[in-house]
Design a protein around this nucleic acid. Structure first.
Lengths: 344, 344
DNA sequence: ATGTTCTATGGAAGGGCTTTCAAAAGTAGG
DNA sequence: CCTACTTTTGAAAGCCCTTCCATAGAACAT
């Protein structure tokens, strides 16, 4: 039925071992037989059976990614980095889109099904301690992206530094009264960004009252959503208290919601209030958001690299790399006069 | 090292066949031995080796998707339907994100690597005829989503009907002068939507001059992008000719760009110009776009169902289902007074 | 020519599972 | 208690590959 190395071997009058060696570019085959085998393989349109290979090699050349990618564009961009790198290396990627923390466990189980994948990438989700143990015992390579566990390799962005840069940018523009529209504090990026914001402000001798800070109560995507930003801003406005002259928003997608809410009240950005957000998602430039850029693509690439290193060398010491976010100045902060800030 | 059915067999004093039967819930095993085997399997924390299973069963329980999902949110939503269905059925999904038509071939090759996947889903991309032949010969199940080929199952949206409904909605609101901001005509949805728009207008006795129609020259994502919409609208405005009172835009994402361009010129939506677009992407409701809703999630679900049917029954006649898009009325068309149209 | 070292090659083993086949055990009928 | 079935079970074969091992032959040295 489908053509195997046995078929090729027969046609070429060689043994299957030789065929295998040719196809895998192993040494010790005369160029003559090599030619012959290759020709025949091509003629028969031979395709290796991936699973048989995986079984024999004890290596599947596929990775899995557990990722809440349907709700946040951040992940999509990271995934792009992951995917392109993997593809160039001949690896496959199995994707497990997750909607909630509970599902993580189910997928973790599945990913760990023996032999299925060479390793798994876990994005932005907490690794339950029970699983941490089990994974360590099984020695399934695991790399964490945008999340942390002391026993596993991880790649993150330095939220503390990011929030500090964002805040200081606003301060450098002369703002004294700065508020923050934050996501749900359950999420650690939200937590880190808030406390760094607070710290930076106090380092500059400014104390901030709590009512300048809006933490999202949303569970969905931990408040990293347009709705969340919109509602937080609406609520802020509804209180009727004086608006700060600048806002630090914990993500671009929220900032877009914030912009909508502000516009409904006729408040202009950046004339009336300046905004700096976080992520630098594709959409951000369409909204001329000044934002902390996370090298998402690069993070994806690095995640794959780390994973492959881990696979090569299971006992290497655990590493953790923090990417430094960089400030991308567009129009929403008011610093850059040459841009016209146009939102619809 | 890792536990196999041999280990279980030894512990339970049965043959490997019996273990396999128990684990696969085959008939003809006494409940006594069944119990014993299950207990031991659980105690040893047995996990089946997916590849060995796939090899023996000649079935991998994984599908692959070739999808341009990094550029258009439409796909992400379809994928969600695919993924959830697949997961509930115990299938895995390998994703191949594609940036251009050329890559399709590479991935098609890879997907077809014998045994790797039970079938592949191709999204919105043309199936090169050479591959069509080869795939048919190999009998790799292939289901097309949002694209078409007479020899394969396909799931599409009825663009003709969609454009007709959209246009007639605008007409029913009293508009006589309607323009269209279209994507790149290379893409068949763009083509279909345009010709249906034209036809519908003429059916209603209105002839439209060509300068009311803007086709995008963009190659990137075939002009289905915010930039494309923005630039088309800008260009339209730059011509200084009279604006139509309504616009049919070929996608939500373009419409968002159109809104931005209009706003820059101080043109209000829907007061000055009404807009109906296409897709009903997640973002659309945030922009209060009246749009033709495509049941993206459902399409994903159906794609999987079709695929599984095809796998079960490779020789069933080819089917093609057209989803009927439905009109979702929000504020951008001006029909629905109760909404406040708020854009930032 | 003979012995020695390499290289090229064939083929068996092994990877972990499912499934088929035949034997063993159990059940029922007489 | 024996025969004729039926059910349960163990084990081998097969899925397709990689890899190891042994052998045959070539190349070289003596």
């Amino acid at each position: 039925m489908s053509v195997t190395i046995y078929d090729i071997a027969r046609e070429a009058n060689v043994g299957i071992g030789t065929v295998s060696r040719v196809l895998n570019n192993s040494a010790n085959v005369t160029s003559q037989t090599r030619e012959r085998v290759i020709t025949i393989a091509r003629r028969l349109n031979y395709q290796p059976h991936a699973f048989a290979q995986a079984l024999a090699r004890k290596r599947s050349n596929t990775l899995s990614a557990i990722i809440p990618f349907f709700t946040n564009y951040f992940f999509i961009e990271v995934l792009q980095g992951v995917q392109e790198t993997l593809t160039s290396l001949g690896y496959d990627l199995i994707i497990h889109g997750v909607n909630s923390q509970d599902q993580v466990e189910e997928y973790l189980q599945r990913s760990m099904r023996k032999g299925r994948v060479d390793g798994t990438l876990l994005f932005s989700l907490e690794l339950p301690e029970i699983y941490a143990q089990e994974i360590l015992e099984r020695k399934t390579p695991l790399v964490l992206v945008d999340t942390f566990h002391p026993k596993f390799d991880s790649i993150r962005v330095d939220n503390t530094m990011g929030a500090k840069i964002a805040t200081e940018h606003l301060l450098s523009l002369g703002h004294k009264s700065i508020g923050m529209i934050n996501a749900n504090l359950k999420s650690s990026p939200a937590k880190e960004r808030l406390s760094s914001f607070r710290l930076t402000m106090s380092e500059h001798g400014i104390s901030i009252s709590d009512d300048l800070i809006m933490n999202s109560p949303d569970a969905k995507n931990d408040g990293f959503s347009r709705e969340s930003g919109y509602h937080s801003m609406k609520e802020f406005l509804a209180r009727g208290t004086a608006l700060p002259t600048a806002l630090f928003v914990s993500s671009d997608i929220q900032a877009i919601g914030v912009l909508a809410a502000l516009r409904e009240s006729g408040i202009r950005v950046p004339e009336d209030v300046s905004i700096v957000s976080f992520d630098d998602v594709e959409l951000a430039k369409n909204f001329d958001l000044t934002t902390m850029s996370q090298p998402m693509f690069k993070m994806g690439v690095l995640a794959v690299k780390k994973m492959l290193e881990r696979i090569e060398n299971p006992n290497a010491p655990v590493t953790s790399v923090d990417f430094k976010p960089t400030l991308v100045i567009r129009a929403s902060c008011g610093a850059n006069k040459k841009y016209v800030f146009h939102q619809q």
